[in-house]
């Protein structure tokens, strides 16, 4: 990777180019700035991992890309350029046509995608026939094949069952089958395995990787589990309080992390591969308000490296330079950040 994101989203060559995305919600308490100026590129066949604590804006970002805020009170600004077209500008009909065919989504809770009153098969057949002019019988055969591919045993029989007749892991697989039935070019997976056991998670992640290879899809994987992004992601964006605080290749994020929040994440996490279990080092304090975010660097109230006098952490807003290879929203000079990571950050690697 050379730069985090190219200057021009349309000619960038990326499948998805998000520029300065902002999503705000008017509420009784004030305007919630849920996503506040996100920029990233996602190339064909690549996987971007988005990590960050609860409430940092990960799901709102994915909803914005899917166009799910349309018709709501949310205000969405910026550019979401998919294959050269700005999704924020196209008409509803076009968006609907692209949804499911070009861009598909996998949620944490499969029941939010599967209707309880229709058989699993009917729903996936419908999803397929909306975008493909084929007979019911042909669609059904295709769906049985798809269910088989996602590892649902006995698909000829299972296709006529209802979601409640499936186990949690099987429902998740059914939803993946539905998401992939049209071989979409972009798959957005929002905590796809968070509710599942590790053994089932391993099956599902394996499946995603295999299907990605087969279809050449790009994936955005949203998770709070750094292990999951380590396994899947080519690039990682770390979010805090609606903003990207750091973005780079997966290796850079894990082995040369530059943002104090990322350091905090790496240090607070217990590790299964740690031979010595040292005391965890939590990030002090609580998530920031999105209505009245902290001044200066939004992370400064919780930052162990804050320096108001020298750097102005509580007053100067740090920038996220998208022309950098590894942009980091922090006022500490880069050389110094690198030195801190090398000498002071114990990432608990075995």
């Amino acid at each position: 990777m050379s730069t985090w994101a190219s200057a021009d989203p349309v000619s960038s060559g990326a499948l998805l180019a998000v520029r300065d995305l902002k999503v705000t919600f008017p509420t009784e308490d004030g305007l919630v700035k849920a996503v506040d100026g996100l920029t990233f590129d996602l190339r064909a066949g690549e996987t971007l991992g988005i990590v960050g604590e609860s409430g940092s804006g990960k799901s709102v970002t994915s909803q914005a890309i899917m166009g799910l805020h349309r018709g709501s009170r949310a205000k969405v600004e910026g550019q979401i350029v998919f294959d050269g077209r700005d999704l924020l500008k196209i008409v509803d009909d076009d968006l609907r046509r692209m949804r499911g065919r070009d861009i598909a989504m996998i949620f944490q809770d499969p029941l939010s995608a599967l209707h309880p009153y229709y058989t699993v098969g009917n729903q996936i057949v419908e999803a397929y026939r909306i975008h493909n002019d084929v007979s019911k019988a042909a669609a059904r055969a295709h769906v049985i094949d798809m269910l088989d591919r996602v590892g649902i045993p006995n698909p000829q029989k299972r296709i006529d069952q209802y979601p409640h007749e499936f186990s949690g892991g099987m429902r998740q697989r059914a939803m993946i089958a539905m998401a992939l039935v049209n071989s979409p070019r972009l798959i957005i997976a929002d905590e796809p395995t968070t509710a599942l056991d590790v053994t089932v998670q391993a099956q599902i992640l394996n499946l995603l990787v295999d299907l990605q290879k087969e279809f050449g899809s790009s994936i955005i994987i949203i998770t709070h589990d750094l292990g999951v992004v380590a396994e899947l992601a080519d690039n990682i964006m770390v979010m805090y309080g609606g903003k990207a605080v750091e973005g780079s290749s997966a290796d850079e994020i894990f082995y040369e992390a530059e943002h104090p929040y990322t350091w905090g994440l790496l240090q607070s996490m217990p590790r299964i591969d740690a031979v010595k279990q040292a005391r965890l080092q939590p990030i002090a304090g609580n998530p920031p308000s999105l209505i009245n975010p902290p001044s200066g660097c939004a992370f400064h109230p919780r930052c162990a490296f804050r320096d108001d006098e020298r750097l102005g952490c509580s007053s100067v807003v740090p920038r996220f330079e998208i022309s950098d290879e590894h942009p980091t929203r922090c006022l500490i000079p880069q050389a110094e950040r690198r030195a801190i990571f090398q000498t002071q950050i114990e990432t608990r690697t075995a």
Binding site: T199, V200, A202, F254, I272
Partner: peptide, 24 residues
């Protein structure tokens, strides 16, 4: 069970061989 847990270390993660359990 242990083999199914992803490790937050991409280089090691890429080299790991998973023992996958089949079925539910």
């Amino acid at each position: 069970l242990l083999s199914a847990v992803p490790i937050p270390d991409p280089r090691r993660e890429n080299k790991r061989e998973r023992i996958l359990l089949k079925g539910d």
